[in-house]
């Protein structure tokens, strides 16, 4: 797949609707998960399982193929985007590579700015820890980058890491090592943070969200290395940041 725009990337994730089967003796547990996933492009089915005190979930792809299972306790622990972002569970006992595959391209809706900042911070911290590679960050408006300029100047001057910021229209300030790409159109509507993993598939991750109403974001996060590569390729090809 070749991405032709950030909206194109978002729509490709929307088409991959997954199914979540909830096996539990407690219908209320399944109902709660259904509520949580209403906006995440996931269909939730409850399977009554009277004999199973500790329930579990099974994920199926759009073609009904089996993708994986996880105990409800562990699944709950990774659902909160603020405290348990999927790429932040590396210290748990769960096999993270499989978990990343399992949760790749997760759609979300109605994040506010605070939640977006928390999610972005996880990717920025990953880039900081790796200390090399390239971090791409779309801020929509100049004012948003001004708010984060100190953070991004530090990221850009950290070890071998390269940081590139995108803002709508003009950018009048001078920054130290930070590359700033001023552009228009989709840059003014999308908040994104993409880390190329410095060549490691295990470290690649991205967050792309469209501001559909003021302060309300709809988008996805992904740890699918091929998809992240496509996003990087799209940004490089379209905006040529090295020559900005």
């Amino acid at each position: 797949m070749t991405i032709d725009s950030l909206r194109d990337a978002l729509e490709s994730v929307e088409r991959e609707r997954k199914r979540l089967e909830v096996y539990t003796a407690e219908p209320a547990v399944a109902a709660e998960l259904e509520r949580q996933f209403t906006t995440r492009n996931v269909t939730v089915d409850h399977r009554q399982a009277e004999a199973f005190d500790d329930g579990f979930v099974a994920i199926r792809d759009p073609d009904n193929g089996f993708r994986g299972t996880l105990g409800l306790d562990q699944f709950d622990a990774i659902l909160s985007p603020e405290t348990h972002l999927p790429w932040a569970v590396e210290s748990t006992d769960v096999d993270t590579r499989e978990l990343f595959d399992f949760l790749e391209n997760t759609l979300f809706a109605s994040y506010d700015r605070r939640q977006m900042l928390a999610a972005s911070r996880e990717i920025e911290e990953r880039a900081w820890r790796i200390g090399e590679g390239t971090l791409y960050a779309g801020f929509e408006r100049e004012a948003a980058l001004v708010d984060q300029l100190e953070v991004y100047d530090r990221l850009a001057s950290h070890e071998m890491l390269t940081a590139i910021a995108f803002v709508d229209d003009t950018w009048g300030r001078s920054a130290t090592d930070l590359t700033v790409v001023p552009d228009s159109d989709e840059i003014g509507a999308f908040w994104f943070v993409v880390f190329d993993g410095a060549g490691s598939d295990l470290q690649k991750c991205a967050l792309v969200a469209e501001e559909r109403r003021a302060g309300q974001y709809y988008g996805f996060w992904t740890y699918d290395p091929e998809f992240v590569d496509e996003l990087v390729d799209y940004l490089e090809r379209t905006y040529d940041p090295q020559n900005a």
Binding site: F52, G55, A58, T69, F102
Partner: peptide
């Protein structure tokens, strides 16, 4: 088969794979 893998995931606190 899904139920057996799901129970394994619970009992062994791990991800049940393909």
């Amino acid at each position: 088969a899904t139920v057996i893998v799901g129970k394994t995931a619970v009992d062994e606190s791990r991800f049940g794979t393909e």
